[in-house]
Design a protein around this nucleic acid. Structure first.
Length: 521
RNA sequence: GGCGAAGUAGCUCAGUUGGUUAGAGCACCGGAAUCAUAAUCCGGGUGUCGGGGGUUCAAGUCCCUCCUUCGCUACCA
């Protein structure tokens, strides 16, 4: 085991009844950036993602596709693996709930909960619509012409009862409220904590956690015909991945409890209420934080399959390049808020910050060095006040960036970094090295050195969000693979004079604005 | 209906415990420069801080009220 501090971050496991879309890419990207940041910052990181593969919908979809459920899962799960590859995600594991290790883990967790008295058998009853495959509560129903009950969809419903095991969620209310009180950052953003608190304050009903009406799931130990129903099965993946039920394993002792469960706001309750309730009941340590991010709209429209405006991450990468896609998604919108995806804002953002910003800064600086310093990093003379101001602000930048990253405030972290790129542009305009070439070549050398050093640190800092572009920038400055962690930020590892510099290529291509469509609707 | 959040520049948003002429980025306009992917730099605000009332020497910031928008209000994930 290493001496480094551990950091465990998870995405939700994605349901294989769906194909990968921008929402999946977004959640996992946020985790990827944080995971990469933490690795560079000296942490031993476990970054987990995967797929949720059980349930009636999967069973039905497989049937429809004419393949066994497992084969269906293999097929769809692979698509999420392809997304991870296309997005250059650095996950350490890809868990699937159909794996044996997960069955063992979740059955063990079940038994623990049962032994501690949190599980009991009863029957689950309600108004069920066969057509909608869903239960409805009494107040959602309306009366049909023949006196029968109708669902909001207009489908007829019938009263059904099936035996089911229940989890005593109702017994956890006080403990949960105490959790939100004692650990107010357990749920972020804060508005989500308010929602959760108000939900729990209103009282909790016990949770039905098994089914007998279908069979694609983890069998309930010692209860023939029962399979586990979604929550315990799905959420327990976070434990499985680090070795549970072997609480003495290296992975478990290093990584549990998780530091951040990253989720979309749609599954907040399950992570902020059910999950800690299960863990409290099982006497297991609780994760530090559940972060619920917002949703994307597409050009102002709500995204839905029926509207046909789903954003395909593969297509985006194809159109704009991976660096731009990764950057835009986490820079454009305050993380936690909903955001609107638009081609115009995409192109504007990427051109302004990437092509015209860091890309241009790199190009003009290295271009001047190649032309005027024999293609090598020059040896600087004494730094002036202006030089020291620029250098010291970038030497200390990691402090602010780290604080923002620890709050999952990605947009602020990047804003902080880009402010320095902007400061470097101001600096180069004031110093005018292209004029110094004739008037004071020694001074020119120092100015170009300062600029190149700023680029070195900027490139190190942006590795988490744009690993590929950062790699190109660092290669351009001759920075070796072993000199790219955050240890190498600051004044102690300044750029080495003499390093060969060649004419820079275009790292951030300028994107074309989308053709404006006619104003007619 | 109940609970909660929010309404600040054309757009997206910052505005600590109330305290000098309300800020940033983008967009826009003007000027400069020409090393660079025609990129960059400097300057420029045109805001009834949702409406109304109140507390205060002083309110975007506190109180009341009204309007608008959004979220949550349990077993699809």
């Amino acid at each position: 085991m290493s001496e480094r501090p551990a950091f465990y971050i998870t995405t939700p496991i994605y349901y294989v009844n769906d194909v990968p879309h921008i929402g999946h890419a977004y959640t996992t990207l946020a985790c990827d950036v944080l995971a990469r940041f933490k690795r560079l910052d000296g942490y031993d990181v476990m970054f987990l993602t995967g797929t949720d593969e059980h349930g009636q919908k999967v069973e039905k979809s497989a049937e429809k596709a004419g393949v066994p459920p497992q084969e269906f899962c293999d097929r769809v799960s692979a698509r999420f693996g392809e997304l991870a590859e296309a997005m250059d995600f650095s996950n350490d594991q890809f868990i699937r709930t159909t794996e044996t290790r997960h069955r063992v883990s979740v059955q063990h967790l079940w038994k623990v909960l049962e032994d501690k008295g949190f599980i009991y058998e009863d029957s689950y009853a309600g108004w069920y619509s066969v057509r909608d495959e869903a239960f409805y509560s009494e107040d959602e129903l309306s009366d049909g012409e023949g006196g029968e009950k109708l669902a909001p969809s207009g489908a007829t419903v019938e009263w059904v009862e099936e035996p089911s095991y229940f989890f005593r969620l109702s017994a956890m209310q006080d403990k949960l409220l105490a959790l939100y009180e004692d650990q107010p950052e357990f749920v972020k953003p804060k508005s989500r904590l308010n929602e959760v608190r108000s939900f729990v304050s209103g009282g909790l009903q016990d949770l039905s956690i098994s089914r007998t009406s279908f069979s694609w799931g983890v069998p309930v130990p010692g209860a023939d015909g029962h399979i586990m129903y979604v929550w315990i099965d799905a959420l327990a993946n976070y434990l499985t991945a680090v070795g549970y039920p072997d609480e003495g394993s290296d992975a478990y002792s290093a990584f549990w409890p998780a530091d951040v469960h990253m989720i979309g706001k749609d599954i907040l309750r399950f992570h902020a209420v059910y999950w800690p309730a299960f863990l409290l009941a099982a006497d297991l340590p609780l994760p530090d934080r559940v972060f619920a991010h917002g949703w994307w709209t597409n050009e102002g429209q709500k995204i839905s399959k029926s509207l046909g405006n789903v954003i395909d991450p593969f297509e985006l990468i194809e159109s704009y390049g991976l660096d731009a896609v990764r950057f835009y998604l986490l820079r454009e919108v305050p993380f936690g808020n909903d955001g609107d995806f638009s081609r115009t804002s995409f192109v504007q953002r990427c051109n302004a910050d990437l092509a015209n910003g860091i890309g241009n800064l790199n190009n003009r600086t290295l271009g001047l060095i190649v032309k005027n310093c024999n293609g090598a990093v020059p040896k600087p003379n004494d730094f002036t006040k202006e030089d020291n101001e620029l250098l010291s602000s970038i030497d200390n930048l990691i402090e602010d960036v780290r604080a923002h990253m620890d709050n999952q405030a990605f947009h602020k972290a990047f804003e902080t970094i880009w402010q320095q790129a902007s400061a470097a542009d101001s600096y180069i305009s004031v110093q005018e090295p292209w004029k110094l070439k004739k008037t004071d070549p020694e001074r020119m050398i120092t100015v170009l050195y300062v600029l190149a050093e700023v680029i070195r640190q900027l490139a190190i800092l942006i590795q988490p969000i744009m690993p590929d572009a950062a790699d190109k920038l660092l290669n351009g400055l001759g920075i070796g693979d072993q000199e790219r962690s955050y240890e190498y930020l600051g004044a102690d590892y300044r750029l080495k004079p003499g390093t060969t510099i060649s004419k820079p290529g275009v790292i951030f291509p300028r994107l074309e604005m989308p053709v404006t469509e006619g104003t007619s609707e």
